[in-house]
Design a protein around this nucleic acid. Structure first.
Lengths: 218, 218
DNA sequence: AATATTATTTAGACAAATCTAAAAATTTGT
DNA sequence: ACAAATTTTTAGATTTGTCTAAATAATATT
């Protein structure tokens, strides 16, 4: 598989996960910053290779082989991200770009050994689950902060958007994965939140709250 | 720079080092397992990019920019090899292929941090020197075992040929980088050597002796 | 020095991944 | 339900890196 093919498969996997049944040509094109006509060509090729189901005008769906392939690439990406943060002291907003390259290195032995070096991590630096060798991953039942009500408590376990700007913003306000969060107040006017985290009071905009996952405590 | 371009530059650097003034089209083609006509095309392109000097029918020579580029790729390759052996417990005969892929990852920060993680190694697992950020490397004044005479002593500091077969052979006879070697006898009939290494007597063929570098003790 | 051999380049083609522009199919709106 | 808007596909072109086959230049041989 080429880098490009792997990127298509990975993108289709992510798009499908985000609630689409069949993934449309335009959606793929937009996500990958390419033209719909290019997507049609590639999708046809991937279909011939048995990685996805494709019928003209009807979008695509990964086959089992396609799923497996996607999970393998995602596993590599996330393991490399952990390596970059844990072993090389990258900050969590710097790792994505480099991991995009590293995920295409072909060596099963390399990934197995990397996994062992990192002590078989279950989550990447952004809280996303890392598939194991068989493609199984441990998904926390997390909810968006924006969907929570006043007085609820939880633990900050992930971000929805991993853009560098958002991650740097979280660094600045010292909100760190694993922090306990208590919702003090929700402002209905603009959907902003007052929370207590890490012993400090914080105000989060509605936009920020829509990108923070917390694991609810009952 | 593309992977392919980097591979050409690296190959040309190595060929030139091995005693050629101008590197010929055919030599490059043979080394890279491609056709001379492909080399001509690529060499023309690299010349336009200012990485090497090229005049028709007269072979090529790297420019300063080309040298620098080659050393940068070689630095990455060798650092990754150290990482694979030291941190992931690869054996020295398994690292080359994976490092061939990793050497093309583009991130200066990554390499700087990897260098630090490994504590700024000066040599790779085969004894080859690792260029620093400025392209400087510490070349030992080593000689081939095959060029030595009886009673000479030295330290095994490198291999000329890093083929997997040769490296596995050395593993089998337990000859390890850093071992002290004493030449007991050179058999003129077939250029084989009797040596003492590691407290053990070994017989090395002329072929093996031509691929073992030792640092002479005066 | 003329000829044979070898090395190198040129010309034209191909596969991969992309693009633009136009055509066709599907979906939407009234 | 039919026209309008949108989505998707097709057709043809481009770039990169490669190839084969033929032509040309350089080198070696006698």
């Amino acid at each position: 598989m080429t880098h490009s093919e792997e990127n298509y498969i990975k993108t289709i996997f992510h798009l499908r996960k985000n609630g689409f049944k069949e993934v449309s040509t335009n959606a793929i094109a937009e996500q990958m910053d390419t033209k719909p006509s290019s997507v049609t060509d590639m999708v046809r090729k991937l279909s011939e290779k048995g990685l996805l189901h494709y019928k003209k005008y009807q979008g695509v769906k990964l086959t089992d082989l396609g799923q497996t392939t996607a999970l393998s690439v995602i596993r590599k990406h996330r393991l490399w991200e952990v390596f970059l943060v844990e072993k090389l002291n990258f900050s969590w907003d710097e790792v994505h770009e480099v991991a995009e390259q590293l995920e295409h290195i072909k060596s099963e032995k390399l990934i197995d050994k990397l996994d062992r070096l990192l002590d078989y991590p279950k989550y990447d630096p952004h809280g996303d689950p890392i598939p194991d060798k068989n493609g199984n991953m441990q998904q926390l039942d997390k909810v968006l902060l924006s969907s929570c009500k006043a007085s609820e408590k939880g633990i900050f376990v992930g971000v929805k958007n991993s853009s560098s700007e958002f991650l740097k913003y979280l660094d600045k306000i010292q909100l760190v994965l694993g922090n306990e969060i208590e919702i003090l107040f929700k402002e209905m006017y603009d959907d902003s939140f007052q929370i207590m985290a890490n012993g400090k009071k914080l105000v989060l905009s509605g936009k920020a709250a829509m990108n923070i996952y917390i694991q609810n405590k009952k």
